[in-house]
Structures are given as C-alpha cells and as structure tokens.
C-alpha cells in the first residue's frame, strides 16, 4: 500500500508543533459535529417549546398561557431528566462493558421495578399502588435497585474469578427469574386490577410525580456530572482491559465506579417513569452514528440531546398529529428494537 512511498521522516516531517491530535478524524468531521450539535439544540428547544406552547388555548404571554405552560413544564422536565439518565448511562455502560450492542436496562432494573409494582397490587390491591407513590417510596425503590446492583458487582466483579460477562449474564437471568414471578402474579390479578397495573408497566412521562424532583434531579445531575468528569478515563476504557491497565488506570475499579454511576442513573429513570428498555440503546447508537467522534466529551452531549429530541419529538408528534400520547414509549421501544436488529445483523464482531 502507501508504505512504499513513505520517505524517511526525519527529513521530510513538517515542524512537529503544527500537528495536533483531534478527536475528529478530519476538520470536516469537526465542522459536521458542530452543525449536528446546533441542529439538535434547535430541535430540542423547538420540541420543548412546542410541548409547552402548542395548542395552548390562551394567547402567548398571558397569565393563563403561563399557567398551562407550567403544568406542561413538568413533563418537559421529566423528559430532560430521563434523557440525561438514559443517554449517559447507556453510553457509559457500553464503554465499561466494551460492547456497543447491549443496554443497561436488561440488567434487571426494569424487572425489579415491574416486580415491585406487581407485588404491590397483588398483595395490597389497588391501594398498594397508591402506597407506592410518594417521595420516601421513590427513594426506597431507587435504593433497592442501586443496592442490589452493588451487591451483584461486589459479588461477581471482585476476587480472583471476577468476570464482567458472567456478571452481566447473571444480572439478566436474575431479572428473568423475577419476570417469571411477576408474570405469575399478573395472571392472578382481576382484569380491572391488571388494567391499572398495565399503565405502570410501560414507561410513560406521566408516571412521574413532581414530588420526586427534589431527589431525582440532584441524583441524576450528580451521577451524570461524575461520569462526564471521567470522560477522559472512559475514553481509555474503550481500549480494553490490558491497554487500560498499561496506561496506569486500574481497570477493575474504573469499571466499578462507572457501573455505580450507571445504576444510579438507571434506577432514577426507571423509578421515575418506568421501563424504557431500548431508548438508551437507540440514542447511544444514533449518537455514535451522527457525532463522528469516539470521544466521550463529544458523545455525551449528542446522546443526551438526541434522547431529549427523540422523547419530546415523539410526544409532540403523537399528541398533536396522531392524538395517541399513550403509546409513545411503546413506539420508541419498537424503533429502538428495530435499530437493535439492524445493528445486530450488520455487526461482524462481538
């Protein structure tokens, strides 16, 4: 190939100072990234404002307008929280596990959530679900999810036989076992109880209660910021275990820290709005496609904005065009699932 034409570098090299390492392959890619980011911001603001203002019966700027907008603002805020949680968690999780075709939501967070919801209505009836709403209950759900995932990491990621893949699979299987139990309880419910439960089993922005914000927002922001601050370390983690250790980072402890952050984010998002299995996968895959950079400092903002645009755009369109707000999360799931299938079939290596 080109090798034959290479001349001795010591004579022909341009002055070293003019050469820099960019996260982008070419200047054009860098320009494209900026444009992508700008477009995403415009879309995010557009959909966000659209959700607040579109179809608002009051004239823009009047008191009534703001009152209605304030009510809708809650759901926009929820979308922002979910976007930060899902996007940051999935990107970090894929890096920590060195695998771009998996998503943290299969690790049992959602099965646990479903099991808790189902058990509540099974044992306590409809009042059980009511008993599950409230800030302390929210905190408790998050704590249970994070606590159990920490137990799992501590068990399978430490010691001589630590193995990340075994940990993942064990997490998934525990989730599956919980799923069997939930399914069993669900079939014993009366149809009316089951209908009430169904609303909780699908991720929906309207599941979120503004009362949770004082806990959900700080948790989400803290975990996301912590992961962002580790962006450069995450970049190293993409090189794999040996290269990471060679560069002086302790691979195991880095992974543990990242996974802790991931479980905080996933637990917050799941306890807030319910299961969103393939949303994170969808936006992480899109983010890698459109950002043209593998640097986490560039991937994170694109992924979060994409996530917000996908969520708010889907809600906006489903509400104002198809009048079918209820199925938004399922539509997103189906799209995300299809993207997963496409990626799966195009992938040559695991």
């Amino acid at each position: 190939m080109a090798e034959a034409t290479i001349t001795r570098p010591d004579r022909r090299t341009p002055p070293a100072s003019g050469r820099t390492t960019s996260a982008f392959g070419t200047p054009r890619a860098h320009r494209r990234y900026r444009i992508t980011l700008a477009v995403l911001i415009v879309l995010a603001v557009g959909f966000g404002f659209g959700l607040l203002a579109w179809d608002n019966p009051m004239p823009v700027g009047s008191d009534g307008f703001w009152r209605i907008a304030r009510m809708r603002a809650t759901s926009v805020l929820v979308m922002a929280i979910v976007a930060i949680c899902q996007a940051t968690a999935t990107v970090s999780f894929q890096t920590a596990t060195n695998n771009r075709i998996i998503t943290p939501s299969i690790m049992g967070f959602e099965s646990l959530y479903v099991a808790i919801q189902t058990a509540a209505i099974y044992f306590l009836g409809v009042s059980g679900l009511v008993a599950l709403t409230g800030l302390p209950q929210f905190v408790m759900q998050v704590a249970v999810m994070v606590g159990l995932s920490l137990l799992l990491y501590g068990w399978l990621l430490s010691g001589r036989y630590a193995n990340l893949q075994v940990m993942l699979l064990v997490g998934i299987i525990i989730g599956g076992g919980l799923g069997s139990v939930s399914t069993f309880m669900q079939r014993l419910l009366t149809p009316s109880d089951f209908d009430i439960l169904t609303a909780r089993l699908f991720g929906s922005v309207s599941n979120a209660d503004p009362d949770y914000f004082p806990v959900a927002i700080p948790l989400c922001v803290a975990a996301a910021v912590a992961l962002w601050l580790r962006a450069r370390r995450l970049n190293v983690l993409t090189l794999g275990r040996d290269a990471t250790n060679n560069l002086g980072l302790d691979h195991r402890s880095e992974i543990m820290k990242v996974l802790f952050g991931v479980s905080l984010l996933m637990a917050t998002s799941t306890a807030l709005v319910g299961p969103m299995t393939f949303l994170g996968f969808l936006v992480a895959t899109l983010a890698y496609q459109i950002s043209g950079s593998a640097d986490h400092r560039h991937i994170f903002p694109v992924a979060i904005l994409t996530c917000f645009v996908v969520l708010s755009g889907a809600y906006f369109i489903m509400r104002n065009v198809f009048y079918a707000q209820g199925v938004v999360s399922i539509i997103i799931e189906l799209v995300g699932g299809s993207v997963f299938l496409v990626v799966l079939l195009r992938k040559g290596r695991l």
């Binding site: 820099t20 390492t21 450069r232 370390r233 190293v236 090189l239 290269a243 560069l247």
Partner: peptide, 12 residues
C-alpha cells in the same frame, strides 16, 4: 495519543 495518558490524563 493515548500513550500520553499517564502524563496528561487525557489533556494533551
């Protein structure tokens, strides 16, 4: 560039 990580922690 990753080879510089032990010195730069990612900030080249």
């Amino acid at each position: 560039g990753f080879g510089r990580f032990p010195y730069s922690k990612g900030r080249l």
